[in-house]
């Protein structure tokens, strides 16, 4: 490996950047790969809010599995500097969930705009940076036995996620009709 045992901060930074790219690639497919005919079929059998909730749920589960996999791979290949495994895994799951929610909705927008996946990155990067900053900041505490993870920030992230779900349910019907 190019970097054998990176410092905890580097490990953390690398981990979240890779999470971001995993998410873009995994979630973008969910909308961009659907053919027109299949969308029409979904349109006839389900209401838009059910459809978007199902998509959000599926992508959340997919991203949670991916997050766990990438923790395992990271600790196998780049050693394991994590001091508090429990909180770190919790944060990673929360982060994966947040990322998947934001990018699912952006994928819906990008698919409707009939653009390629590149526009998703343009739309998504500025939106996701604040959450990613918070997640990196929080998970830095998991590498240091002295620091504690502030609960208020975790709650802030959860509140953001709930807000994204609500916005998706409210706004998706407008994207859906054609």
């Amino acid at each position: 490996m190019a970097i054998e045992q990176p410092e905890p901060r580097v490990w953390n930074g690398l981990f979240w950047v890779i999470q971001l790219f995993i998410c873009i690639n995994a979630v973008a497919k969910s909308f961009l790969q659907e053919s027109r005919g299949r969308m029409l079929y979904f349109y006839s059998i389900a209401s838009p809010s059910d459809f978007v909730l199902a998509k959000l749920l599926f992508n959340s589960l997919l991203m949670l599995v991916m997050s766990l996999l990438s923790i395992v791979l990271f600790s196998l290949f780049l050693s394991n500097p994590i001091q508090k495994a429990g909180p770190f895994i919790g944060l990673v799951l929360l982060g994966g969930w947040s990322l998947s929610l934001v990018f699912t909705f952006l994928a819906a927008i990008a698919a409707k705009a009939q653009q390629n996946a590149a526009i998703m990155a343009v739309l998504g990067f500025p939106l996701i940076i604040p959450q990613l900053l918070l997640l990196m900041k929080l998970s830095n505490a998991a590498f240091n036995p002295v620091l504690t993870i502030p609960l208020s920030t975790v709650l802030l992230l959860v509140a953001l996620d709930v807000m994204i779900i609500m916005l998706a349910v409210i706004l998706f019907p407008f994207l859906w009709r054609d």
Partner: peptide, 17 residues
């Protein structure tokens, strides 16, 4: 329509940032 949807979504995410 798409512009309006993104505008609302972006504004809601802008506040935290």
């Amino acid at each position: 329509r798409i512009g309006a949807v993104y505008n609302i979504f972006a504004y809601a995410m802008l506040f935290p940032s």
